[in-house]
Every structure is written in C-alpha cells, then in structure tokens.
Simulated assay, not measured.
Amino acid sequence: MSDEKGDAGATGEPVEEAKKKGGKGRLIAIAVVVVGMLAGAGGVWWYTQRGGAAPASGDKHAEAPAEGGEGQGEGGEGGEASKADPSAAYIEVPPMMVNLRGGGPAKFIKLRFIVVAAEGKTDVVKARLPVILDALQPFLRELRPDDLNGSAAVFRIKEEMLRRSAQALGKGMVRDVLIQDLIQQ
C-alpha cells in the first residue's frame, strides 16, 4: 500500500505540473506568434502609408501632385518626395572610361552617371559640365581595383563625386549624383 500511495503521489504530482508548464509554454508560444503577426501587419501598414509601394509603378510621377497634399500633413515625408520631382533637373553625363591605378595589367572603369542640378540651376550646370568632369578625372584615376570591392564602394564613390562636383561649381548647384553604370574591366 505504501508503494501504491508513493506511486500515486509521485506520478500524480509531476503530471499536473507538466500539464501546467506545457499549458504555459503553449500560451507563451501563441502570444509570441500573435505579437509577431501584429508587428508584421503594422510594418506593412506603415510601409504602404508612407508611399513605399508606389515607386515600383511607372506612374509615380503622374500621381505625385495628388499625393503631395496628403503626405505633407503626415510629417512631411511623403511631401518631401513629391517636392523633389518637379524641381529636379537631371543632366546625363556622357559615359567616362578611366584607367585605374595599379602595378599589374591595365584595369579600366567605365562610369555612366547623372548630375541632379538644383532648382533653377540647370543651364548653369550644363554649361559648366566640363568643369565637373575635370574635377572628377583625378579622383577616378587614383582609384585602385580594391577600392571598388564591397557593397559600400559605390556609396563612397558617389559621395566623393558629389563633394567634388559641389566644390567645382559651388555650394547649392548640384543636389545629387546618380550612378547609372559602374563597370570594372
């Protein structure tokens, strides 16, 4: 009898604890899944509200004025993007081919980019485009093949090109440099 009581007491108590722990574990797992789903749904809602999905379509520029009024009331993030399009003047620069610095066999870089002129400065920037190219030539010729490795290489090159363009023409003339092609041979 003592064995039966001991067995019943020993098996009865851990089974109840196991049920309680298993129930709590399942409840926590369900809560984590629900919170994750809510966070994902919130992220999707936030992304669509700020206009992140719209640039994928080709008609974004046609819709920009209609969205500008709505976006400006929500912190200005959507309005900032719609303000940038009408005032931007894109000046395509002829492709440049420059040899890279290095001791081994000759390596070249072919670069095609667009200069974004500030509002009302398009004609001035177009007229002084040779000055921009002259400012960029020494920088591009000093690049080594190792400078083009990694994911941040294009960003660093773009920032340096923007800095040198602004230095050559003066502040407020060039808003951005958009790299279209960067090919190393």
Rank of each mutant, 00 (worst) to 15 (best):
E4N: 02
K5I: 04
G12H: 00
E13W: 04
V15T: 02
E16K: 10
E17K: 11
K20H: 04
K20P: 02
K24S: 11
R26S: 08
I28G: 03
I28S: 09
A29K: 08
I30H: 03
V32A: 13
V35Y: 03
V35L: 15
G36W: 01
L38N: 03
G42K: 01
Y47E: 03
T48L: 08
T48H: 07
T48K: 11
R50C: 05
A53G: 00
A53K: 03
P55A: 04
A56S: 05
S57P: 00
S57F: 10
S57C: 07
A64L: 06
A66E: 11
E67W: 09
E70K: 13
E70L: 11
E70V: 13
G71R: 06
Q72R: 13
Q72K: 12
Q72T: 12
Q72I: 14
E74K: 14
E74A: 12
G75C: 05
G76Q: 04
G79A: 11
A81N: 07
K83A: 07
A84T: 09
A84W: 09
D85A: 12
P86I: 01
P86N: 02
S87H: 08
A89F: 08
Y90V: 11
Y90M: 12
Y90F: 14
Y90G: 00
V93W: 02
P94S: 13
P94F: 06
P94Y: 03
M96A: 13
M97R: 12
V98N: 01
V98I: 13
R101Y: 08
R101K: 14
G102F: 06
G103K: 10
G103W: 08
P105K: 12
P105N: 12
P105F: 00
A106D: 10
A106L: 12
K107V: 10
I109Y: 01
I109D: 02
K110A: 13
L111I: 06
R112V: 09
I114T: 15
I114F: 05
V115M: 09
V115K: 05
A117D: 05
A118V: 02
E119G: 01
G120C: 05
K121Q: 14
K121N: 07
T122M: 13
A127F: 10
R128K: 15
R128H: 12
L129C: 06
L129N: 07
P130L: 09
V131T: 14
L133M: 14
D134A: 15
Q137L: 12
P138W: 05
F139R: 12
R141K: 15
R141V: 07
D146L: 11
D146I: 06
D147V: 00
L148W: 05
L148E: 06
N149V: 15
N149K: 15
S151P: 02
A152R: 06
A152D: 12
A153G: 05
E160Y: 03
M161I: 04
M161R: 05
L162N: 11
R164I: 02
A166W: 02
Q167N: 13
K171A: 14
V177H: 06
I179W: 09
Q180V: 13
Q180W: 04
L182M: 15
